[in-house]
Design a protein around this nucleic acid. Structure first.
Lengths: 124, 124
DNA sequence: ATAATATTCAACCAAATGGTTGATGAAAAA
DNA sequence: TTTTTCATCAACCATTTGGTTGAATATTAT
């Protein structure tokens, strides 16, 4: 399972890359909705929304529980944490690069006997 | 410009939804690379990697600075923060839903004169 | 039993995606 | 100047995506 984690991220980021699906996620994050309720605000067919929901399900971002003929849709937040972790990891590498640059500049300035600002940084 | 922010998110999440592009981002997060250097580890043509880079550029996740005939590629972390914020927002709504459920259960249990656990929660 | 409702499925379509190869342009090296 | 090198562009191709419509399925209501 070397790249299964990566393919899961593919699915999650792909699922998030659409405004309709993000809107659906925002709604189910607050409360559970049926497919019809989710579809109602959108100017597209029920089948189209059903497909969007399936994309979200394949990313495991949304879970359906069957209650007779209706499906109740809820958010599953777990994959969001993986996506957030991936993004945080990139930001962290970036921060380290900046830190190294800061250190380099600080040393250069010290060697030149200068004072003053370093690269602007967000405070940890 | 109502939905320009949304379309920017579309581009960022779409850019992140590919393992090659994520790997490119991880590299440029640490240091600057030329297009050829970025392409070298991948089993695909230079033109293909060039296209991936263009996707990252359109998402503003990557910036190129031209130095003669080479392009030096660096991470631009700003769009990552927007993506992270969107994810955090979903998680926040989810947490509030759980909090409301907790409150409901607590009140039910109190009314029934019971004690004991509530829904399991991650500590803030 | 029949009809209405909720949802999915299947077939289709246009557009976008992710890859290829070969030509091109512009800068650097010979 | 000629030749490499770095990178993009253009044309092409197969697959995926995001939508449609109409039929199918299963459950609930009459």
């Amino acid at each position: 399972m070397v790249d299964e984690k990566s393919r899961a991220l593919d699915r999650v980021f792909h699922a998030l890359a659409d405004p309709t699906r993000r809107e659906i996620l925002r709604r189910v994050a607050r409360q559970a909705y049926t497919v019809s309720e989710l579809a109602e605000p959108f100017e597209m067919s029920l089948a189209a929304v059903s497909k969007h929901i399936k994309v979200l399900e394949k990313a495991a971002l949304l879970q359906q529980t069957v209650e007779g003929r209706i499906r109740r849709c809820r958010l599953n937040p777990a994959p969001l944490r993986n996506a957030a972790a991936e993004i945080a990891s990139l930001e962290q590498f970036w921060d380290r690069q900046l830190a190294a640059l800061d250190a380099f500049l600080a040393q250069s300035n010290a060697a030149a006997g200068k004072s003053g600002k370093t690269t602007k940084r967000s405070k940890k």
